[in-house]
Amino acid sequence: MIDPRETIIGKRLEKVKSIIAVSGGKGGVGKSLVASTLALTLARKNFKVGLFDLDFTSPSTHLILGVKDAKPKEEKGIIPAEVYGLKYVSVVAYSKEKPLPLRGADISNALIELFAATIWGDLDFLIVDMPPGISDATLDLIRLIKGIKFLIVTTPSPLAFETVKKLLGLLAELKVPVLGVVENMKMRKSALVSRNVTCAGLPFLGDLPFDPKVEESLGNVDALLKTDFAKKLAAIVSKIPFNPNWLFS
């Protein structure tokens, strides 16, 4: 018995130039916020961008973006909804606000289903908001998505960074490219993250301030993009010359 879905995933993503998984070791470090803001920032630079919320059991990008009803269309596959210049897919379109308790095998199945059926079309960037840690979704993405790169989010907390070290260790073992590490919710000077990341030979991309205005801006992308958090992320992003063809190759 053969599951035919995995054979079509490569074709579904053949017109996507760069796939970036925004990941971290722990929940609550700001992965979804970084993923959403990164996607919006790139879209406002006129790149073609998709945002895929892969945190099936605790999705939150729809709340950050203020998406009320982003149901994908059905046309020989799943056609992502268009929100704020992004092609957008979240399981919330199907599970609504109900709890969706899933075990590992279910997460894998849902992930394969959505990657096999979603027609993203031409994209410069597909930003994937990952669930925390190194379990099913992370392992499946590494296994199934050729050329995927990881952008790692941590906080200054040694607890958060300790879990990130495990994620980075796994990615290194499996030879999965890491674009770099972003330190979120920075409140005071600390070199723990930057020093460790640099010592590991990885790019430390910069820190993002703890910005109370981010909470107030949830659900309003214009307000979000005006926060110090978003401006600093845009500054980090702007240091990178934007040609998705070679930048992330």
Binding site: F56, P72, E74, I78, V91, Y94, S95, K96, K98, P99, L100, P101, L102, R103, D106, I107, N109, A110, E113, L114, A117
Partner: peptide, 23 residues
């Protein structure tokens, strides 16, 4: 329709008829 597209969403909508668990 939700279950058609992503069968795992069955866990959001269907419960055990005896004990009510979604597990």
């Amino acid at each position: 329709e939700a279950i058609h597209f992503v069968p795992e969403t069955v866990h959001a909508y269907i419960k055990c008829p005896r004990c009510g668990s979604p597990d």
